[in-house]
Amino acid sequence: MEGLSLDLVVLQLFTGLALGAIYVLLALGMSLLFGMLTVVNFAHGAFYMLGAYVGIMLLGVGFNFWLCLLFVPLVVGSVGLLCERFLIRRLYGRGIDYPLLLTFGLSYIMVECVRIVFGTTGLQFDTPDALVGATDIGIGYFPTYRLFVIAVTFVVLGLLWLFLERTPYGLIIRAGARDPQIVRILGIDVARVWLVVFGIGTGLAALAGLLAAPLQGASPEMGNSILAEAFVVTVVGGMGSLVGAVIAGLLVGVVVAMTSLLAPEMAQVSIFALMAVVLLIRPQGFFGRAGLMS
């Protein structure tokens, strides 16, 4: 372990948290959709990719990055709303495989559309000027933009928590996740709630894609690999659990970062090794309810 100073490890830990923050945003959306709608959203990676490209589009028509942070989730979330309203809604109650196949197909359509409009080669996405450079975090310099990604994620988490725990709408969503039937009996139109949940889930994926773009650029396929990783996070955290998504997201990010420090060639594999270990010990994941899939 020569040359591995504590500072380097701590800096790498922060790198892992920034990567984890992206996972968290993606996995939160997936977990919301699965926990409440029992939809395994295979298009989640495509919505993530769409986030980056809608960002590029909005920047192109004169928006700045800060406005994009607000408008990208709104625009892509609206696309999500339309998909739910006109396609996915027809498949509720038909088991888990129908929406899975539908969203799988949707992801191909979205990727192909982006290829047609923006071309097949990746595009560069500049880090906003204010966030270029590095910030001294006490133990060394750390890229400012990555700190920003971590901060945005925590703000979003806070807002989501307030929304779910402190608003009437959040109460309906929490109750609807446990027992949609009683919510209907009490006079609430659950379909409208699902619509909102779908919008939130896809909006979060888009935000993740936008935040990731300055780190790795944008390409039509950027959602494909991260979809698998986000699935791992969702499964490790426990399908349907939001707390699980947060903890597992950060954990997976840190594990990847640490593995890249020690054995870079193992970084990708480490994600799946972690999942295998967790599933062997705890098949429902950290916070999952046992038997949810059956």
């Binding site: 309906i172 929490r174 109750a175 446990r178 027992d179 009490l186």
Partner: peptide, 17 residues
């Protein structure tokens, strides 16, 4: 069908929403 994980107050609130 008392909703698990919700307080008595939140269960009652559901009836009002």
């Amino acid at each position: 069908r008392i909703v698990q994980g919700l307080s008595v107050r939140d269960n009652l609130r559901l009836g009002l929403l």
